[in-house]
């Protein structure tokens, strides 16, 4: 069988999974109000904080007030659109629901990735609209100054969701061995919060930045947010940021697939 004859039906499977997840998210529009209110609240609060922080200053660590405000919007949207994979996959493993998916002809990790990507892409426009409305009233509108920036931000956003979902999947798969696996997510989430979500990575001490760049945390939100706001974005910068995300994506895909393979071989399915 040729390569394309094998890949195309597989790709269709996961595209269908993504599509169903997207439609499902929009079936009850009232449920979107919660994330919108939460994001809107955070963007408002941090807009106020940055306004206060920049009193008497033009820049902090190379970022202007406007850049910091928009940085936060993009970072939070990336995080919001990719959360939830750990909780749902962990729960499916713990209550034995995952047994049904193991019996089907698709890969659990790829299916999770596709579904969560679908959900994230369906949430993004409405969250962006909310964040845009609030942030632009405080710091002026964000308008991409070049095709490079617009394209890079879009690609980076997709890479960010994918990377976050795969890393969450790795942590969730640990539930095959340890029922109490939430500690992994908590530690991961807190480091991510400090390493580029609440504020740009450049705000941290230089030594911390150097160390953190060797880990996936900044590549989740700092990379797409920086692409959105850094002045004079050029190909080299875009290449570095997107390249870093891609490298971590491939690594986490391999890690998730490996952990899953081990899990299926050694696991006992929970639930009765």
């Amino acid at each position: 069988m040729s390569f394309s004859a094998r890949i195309v039906p597989e790709a269709r499977k996961y595209a269908a999974a993504a599509r169903v997840a997207m439609l499902d998210r929009w079936r009850y529009p009232a449920e979107l109000v919660g994330p919108c209110v939460t994001l809107g609240l955070f963007v408002f609060v941090f807009s106020c904080i940055w306004t206060s922080a920049f009193v008497g200053k033009a820049t902090i660590s190379g970022y202007t007030r406007q850049a910091c405000t928009w940085y936060f919007v993009f970072a939070e949207i990336c995080y919001f659109c990719s959360s939830g994979a750990f909780a749902s996959l962990s729960q499916d493993i713990k209550d034995g629901q995952v047994a049904y998916t193991l019996a089907r002809p698709y890969h659990l990790v790829l299916a999770t990735w596709a579904q969560r990507l679908g959900i994230g892409l369906s949430l993004a426009p409405i969250l962006f609209a909310v964040g845009y409305a609030i942030a632009s009233s405080v710091a002026g509108p964000w308008i991409p100054d070049s095709m490079l920036r617009g394209g890079a931000v879009l690609v980076s956003f997709v890479l960010s969701i994918s990377l976050h979902v795969l890393l969450q999947a790795c942590m969730a798969l640990v539930a095959f061995w340890f029922e109490e696996n939430s500690a992994f997510l908590w530690i991961f989430a807190k480091i991510t919060l400090v390493a580029g979500t609440l504020m740009p990575l450049e705000f941290l001490p230089a030594s911390w930045q150097e160390v953190l760049l060797w880990f996936p945390f900044p590549w989740l939100v700092w990379a797409p947010a920086k692409l959105a706001v850094v002045p004079d974005l050029d190909l080299a910068m875009a290449g570095f940021l997107l390249g870093g995300q891609m490298a971590w994506l491939l690594l986490s895909l391999a890690l998730a697939a490996g952990v899953f393979h081990l899990a299926v071989r050694h696991a006992t399915v929970h639930g009765g």
């Binding site: 922080a53 920049f54 902090i60 609440l198 504020m199």
Partner: peptide, 12 residues
Amino acid sequence: FIVFWKVLFRRA
């Protein structure tokens, strides 16, 4: 969050 505030106050 304490880390966040420490860093922010140091900068701002």
